[in-house]
Design a protein around this nucleic acid. Structure first.
Lengths: 220, 220
DNA sequence: GTCTATACGGCGATAGAC
DNA sequence: GTCTATCGCCGTATAGAC
């Protein structure tokens, strides 16, 4: 933890990022002091201001860079090919893997939205909305092909995201379950959920296939 | 908001509780100051200490009393009768209704666990565990009767709880969806999830019925 | 039970030497 | 880029009068 005075630069930046992640995860934004952060990095508190203008900017940049990573990774994982099950499978496998790999960032992105000032808040919520929309698009595609039976696409998307994102609140590496088991089990539950078995009575008429053949197009 | 000096008692206690709920919900424990709380109630900050010994105790009592309410309400709603679907339906309808009725308390109970000191934390987590166990018991019952097909009961319970509890992060009274629609839609999704359609390959053998006929018994 | 006043410490942020 | 020093503010909690 200690540190040679006069040492330097981009290593410090990365160290601040990592320590900040840890502190935000365990204590939260409001309860994390910059003195703590500096202490964890091994520098003096005033030196932090070489890396950000204020505490709020630090949080915002951390969240925003994570959201960018998330989007880039999702775009790489998704392909607008195959049937609804194939597309949903890719989404779920990506989402679960990402949440297992980076639980801290993910958790912070959900829990610290409230700590963002209004402008920053809006920016992040818009990014999150884009992410949700990608899932909704897949669900509507699968609904149009008749693979999925869903009473309400948006609620289904919220349900799926909540259930998958919940993983990072209890999954612990080295615990009872391997990553693969978690991923496969949750994939199975999601596919089962969208199959709509046991709720046929209350479903609205599925849309005609012709109406949604432009389903590769941007929605929004 | 203003208030006549010298006025009194149990009305203040209730006012503090309500204002505290609101502030904890919107700002979080660490970011909520007792000055804010007193201001919202319309008393001076020092007067708060007639109602609790310190800020931590205030949070703990708020959470604990809510958890007690939750348990009592669940016990009233559940009956150890009927098949797995009937039991699960009662659980889900109760859980959704409760989360829609009291989203603030529910949200706080999830998000502010981290703000509890170790002893208090343990007490609340134990209560939450009891709640989870009641769902797990229902899932195991339905699995034993052959109604439910689940690769892993505990993961299914976590998935269901996360997806239902997520409701209180987006549901707004007066929005697009009525309480009844939300309740019925989520019930449908849960029942569909536990039906296990689309994941038959990877399932373990279901337990024999005889082995679990003591399923009304306490587990733990 | 409420008020006023205050103790005491930690907070974010800045200034200036090296 | 880092350090030391410091400013002004706000936090929780307490004491004592009414």
């Amino acid at each position: 933890m200690a540190r040679i005075a006069g040492s330097s630069g981009p290593k410090t930046e990365e160290a601040i990022r990592r320590a900040g992640l840890q502190l935000l995860y365990t204590h939260g934004y409001a309860a994390m002091s910059l003195r703590q952060l500096a202490g964890a990095v091994g520098i003096q508190q005033g030196s932090l201001y070489n890396y950000f203008r204020n505490k709020q900017e630090f949080l915002f940049e951390l969240i925003r860079s994570h959201m960018r990573d998330l989007h880039a990774a999702l775009d790489a994982a998704l392909l607008p090919e195959g049937n609804g099950v194939a597309r949903l499978t890719r989404f779920v496998e990506f989402h679960v893997a990402y949440h297992i790999e980076r639980p801290q960032e993910v958790f912070i992105c959900y829990s610290e939205l409230r700590s963002l000032e209004p402008e920053n808040f809006s920016a992040i919520v818009a990014m999150r909305r884009d992410y949700e929309d990608k899932l909704i698009e897949i669900l509507e595609f699968g609904r149009a092909t008749g693979e999925f039976r869903l009473a309400d696409t948006r609620m289904a998307a919220y349900a799926i995201l909540a259930m998958l994102s919940g993983i990072c609140t209890w999954y612990r590496p080295g615990g009872r379950l391997s990553k693969d088991e978690v991923r496969e089990t949750f994939l199975g539950m999601v596919l089962s959920l969208v199959s709509g078995v046991g709720m046929e009575e209350s479903l609205p008429e599925p849309p005609r296939l012709a109406e949604v053949s432009r389903s590769g197009a941007r929605r929004r």
